[in-house]
Design a protein around this nucleic acid. Structure first.
Lengths: 335, 335
DNA sequence: AAGATCGGTTGTATCGATAAAAAGCTGCCA
DNA sequence: TGGCAGCTTTTTATCGATACAACCGATCTT
């Protein structure tokens, strides 16, 4: 495999000149440049990225830690982040944390190995108590919930506002007993708790009392668990005419459980989700949901990270970005 | 940031000894090892991966080129590959090719930059004509269709056999006019053509004539296109009582189109897909499908690649692995 | 015409880790 | 006691690219 030295020899110049050509530095005579380019082509030269990284102290790669790329929301997010990173000239290496706290912490320390120039971390297992783990000397952006006010940039969903809007939408369509299907509410600032808060706010705003019976907490935010828990509630005779699901994935489990119980959507119960994953538009019935503009969030996260990487220092104060959202009304709420 | 030299100085040994400790070489006196480990901890030392890569000529990272991680099948595959790679001590960097031929070729050349130790390439845009592009001097594994008999290892789905089984399943359930919803059949050995062949074999095997009318070719294998084309066929009055969809994603579009037309599944038309993505079990009706054991295919692909990486040479002849499959019968075929 | 300026190019040192070979240090045996 | 084997550690060179400073020749200035 040809090195920069080989090219230099072939072109009759020094390695440094070849380097200058490669990196588009000015002050290289066109004739020289052409000679070098010709030699590069002739020898089929490729830069050795490892050597460049060592010298530059950069890797050109950022890490992305998500629970699993297979989950619809994170797949969508990962796709958007890889695309956004590409626009910033960065590659993305994915760590799957399985939503486990230890694996999220491990991802943090991997990026300290200078494996990555920076890390976009989707915190799902870590909590507010782990804030000090973020006190690291390299760029990190938190994407998601569970840790607020940390020492790093943060891109978050409009959880409360969007949840309030989604719930209000159900109320406006005439629902009076709106259930919430979420994950465990353990007091952390997690997805479920934040969206629960929005849900409550909508109820209060409409002058309705919140009935704890209507809050269905699943073990995890999967189709299986959502379906299982809702089936249980239905079997227990829960009276409800609307469901706000904290994610579209949860909503799919809910729709399935309702179908199993012979409950028609939206005639008997209206359902709305959160995320607007691709499948939602094609379900039967199609799913009303909240669209949080994944592309914009991804772009912001990458931009924030790239800025830190470029400044290569602690930079100015941390930034918090909360994305916009859009209500998408479809059949499941009678849209 | 501490270097190996700093650690060496702190522990009163040479850098080489520190290196030996890091890499678990034998013949380091326990007392020395402890001193080194202590120094490493004290200085919060992290190896510089770039330096190691340069010296070793390895990066510890493999590339994975897929159309988009967001698509259910590729998301599933990517998750399995990242997990399998982890077991082999490799990290995965993802390239999204958008199913574009040029981007797939670009991924091939990126891996030549020694950015990756090897590449797992899901060929969707490239075709048999691009075989010679695979004549590269570094490890590549093709995962999928469209290129067979190339100079590299190949992991493929049991396309024909599984498609035949799926179609036969419909016939066994009493269907007599089974439609196929696929992508363009342009003569390449692509997903659609291979599965089309399996479909035909099942018909022939059952002594049925193949009616070209029943082959619905969508522009692309998306929910949108599948739904659009099937709606067209239904509007044209196509007579059919079963549908074999080349992917579960296509099946979701089909189910939606059937629902729009007021056609009941499975009472009037039975539907089966291919891939067994997570959502399939929760659709209403739940989707019968072919489960190709993604995990096994991912493991094989990574194992083949890792073996080439370790041998660091051309190695023995190329290998072709075709995974097993399993029919999953659910409501959409009256299961 | 001497000196300053500037574009173009090159030599040298370096990024941090590791392979290979050389060198110390034991202890053991003749 | 000399020498050898074997474990342990160090020395030296190197992976390939690039920052930096020095350098050279030509043009410009006054």
């Amino acid at each position: 495999m040809a090195t920069i030295q080989d090219v230099a020899k072939a072109a009759g110049v020094s390695a440094m000149t070849v380097s200058n050509v490669i990196n588009g530095h000015p002050n290289v005579r066109p004739a020289t440049r052409d000679r070098v380019l010709a030699a590069m082509t002739r020898l089929d030269y490729r830069v050795n990225v490892a050597a460049r990284n060592l010298r530059k102290g950069r890797t050109g790669t950022i890490g992305l830690a998500v629970p699993e790329v297979n989950r619809p929301y994170y797949g969508r997010l990962a796709a958007a982040i890889i695309a956004a990173a590409g626009r910033h000239g960065l590659r993305v290496s994915i760590e799957q944390t399985g939503a486990r706290r230890e694996d999220e912490l491990a991802a943090l320390s991997l990026s300290r190995n200078r494996l990555y120039d920076g890390l976009i971390l989707c915190t799902v297992g870590m909590g507010q108590a782990d804030v000090e783990a973020l006190e690291v000397d390299h760029p990190v952006v938190i994407l998601g919930e569970r840790i607020f006010g940390g020492p790093v940039d943060h891109v978050a969903m409009p959880n409360e506002a969007a949840s309030e809007a989604a719930t209000r939408h159900l109320l406006e369509r005439g629902c009076r007993r709106v259930a919430l299907v979420c994950g465990r509410l353990d007091g952390e600032v997690d997805v479920s708790s934040l969206r629960h808060a929005g849900y409550l706010r909508a109820l209060t705003g409409a002058g309705l009392a919140a009935d704890p019976e209507l809050v269905v907490t699943a073990e995890s935010l999967t189709m299986r668990e959502a379906a299982r828990h809702l089936r249980g509630k239905v079997a227990d005779g829960l009276d409800f005419d609307g469901v706000f699901c904290v994610t579209d994935t949860v909503a799919m489990g809910v729709l399935r459980a309702l179908a199993d119980a012979g409950i028609r959507v939206p005639e008997q119960v209206r359902v709305i989700g959160f995320d607007n994953v691709d499948e939602s538009a094609y379900l039967v019935p199609s799913l009303s949901t909240v669209d949080p503009d994944h592309d914009l969030m991804a772009e912001r996260a990458v931009a924030l990270l790239a800025a830190r990487v470029d400044r290569a220092g602690p930079g100015p104060g941390r930034e918090e970005f909360v994305g916009p959202f859009r209500l998408v009304v479809r059949e499941s709420t009678g849209g």
